[in-house]
């Protein structure tokens, strides 16, 4: 496993959760090649809330796939929690995803014929958790996202925001160090999107590292750091001294029709 030298962090002094060194990804496409990433180096540290921005086709999703251990780079190294994952086999990558990473998708990707609870329990099965703990763990996570009383609902019985909360509970259920979300609010209206962001901020305060891909500067403004990509390159890495406080913003809004689920104690 190659030793990766860390870039000295601005804020934290500990080991980065994500370390990328000269990461490139190329795809063969009808004779030619597409260079989705062209040499990206960056570190993301524990407890950061990072927004990834950039125009369509700039390589954001490609980066998320590499960082999420769904794919391996064509060149360069990627390390998660200090472990080099650049050359792992599909099954080894599965284990890293299972133990360390939670995914949240734009389209929620819940299993339709399966209750909220079972959707959340699903990753536990692949993490080889004992059957007896599974329901309890999943219930706890549904409680964390404010859906403690809707465990038996099916996706079709839940609003978009609630479905995304189930998906977030599913992402959290194996205690990942890293939460990756590609356009998590893209399919939601503004207010519901704010509620999801508020949930992310709350989870982030509890210590989980979050990376969110977004087009929306309003969403990026909720993050503590904003990375901007263009043509497969990292063109800007900016710290946000005063992120939005979504809890306060939501409290100031007039109460909406019950979308979010019950308040969390």
């Amino acid at each position: 496993m190659a030793e990766i030298q860390t870039i000295p962090p601005a804020a934290a002094a500990d080991r980065p959760v994500i370390a990328c060194r000269d990461v490139a990804k190329t795809y063969a496409m009808g004779g030619g090649v597409v260079q989705a990433l062209r040499g990206v180096s960056l570190d993301i540290f524990a407890g950061e809330f990072v927004a990834v921005m950039g125009p369509s086709g700039s390589g954001k999703s490609t980066l998320m796939n590499l960082v999420g251990c769904l794919d391996t780079p064509s060149a360069g190294r990627v390390a998660i929690d200090g472990e080099d994952v650049s050359d792992l086999s599909p099954d080894q990558l599965s284990d890293i995803r299972s133990r360390r990473i939670g995914f949240v998708f734009q389209q929620f990707n819940l299993l339709r014929r399966t209750s909220a609870l079972e959707n959340v329990m699903m990753p536990l099965m692949y993490a080889r958790r004992p059957v007896t703990d599974r329901a309890e763990r999943a219930k706890r996570c549904l409680g964390m996202v404010g859906l403690g009383s809707r465990t038996d609902h099916f996706p079709s019985q839940l609003s978009g925001g609630q479905q995304q909360r189930v998906a977030i509970a599913r992402a959290l259920v194996n205690d990942p160090t890293l939460l990756l979300a590609d356009e998590p609010t893209g399919a939601l209206d503004t207010r519901t999107g704010m509620e999801i962001l508020e949930l992310f901020q709350r989870l982030n305060r509890q210590g989980i590292t979050i990376v969110v891909v977004t087009h929306d500067p309003e969403v990026a403004a909720a993050a503590s750091r904003v990375l901007t990509f263009r043509d497969g390159r990292l063109v800007s890495d900016r710290r946000n001294a005063s992120p939005r406080d979504l809890a306060a913003e939501l409290a100031a809004l007039p109460p909406a029709n019950d979308e979010a689920g019950e308040a969390v104690a």
Partner: peptide
């Protein structure tokens, strides 16, 4: 296919 992709993403191995 999407369900399989999701299962793989959340940690399923090929053998699973």
């Amino acid at each position: 296919t999407r369900e399989i992709g999701l299962r793989l993403a959340v940690g399923a191995r090929r053998g699973d």
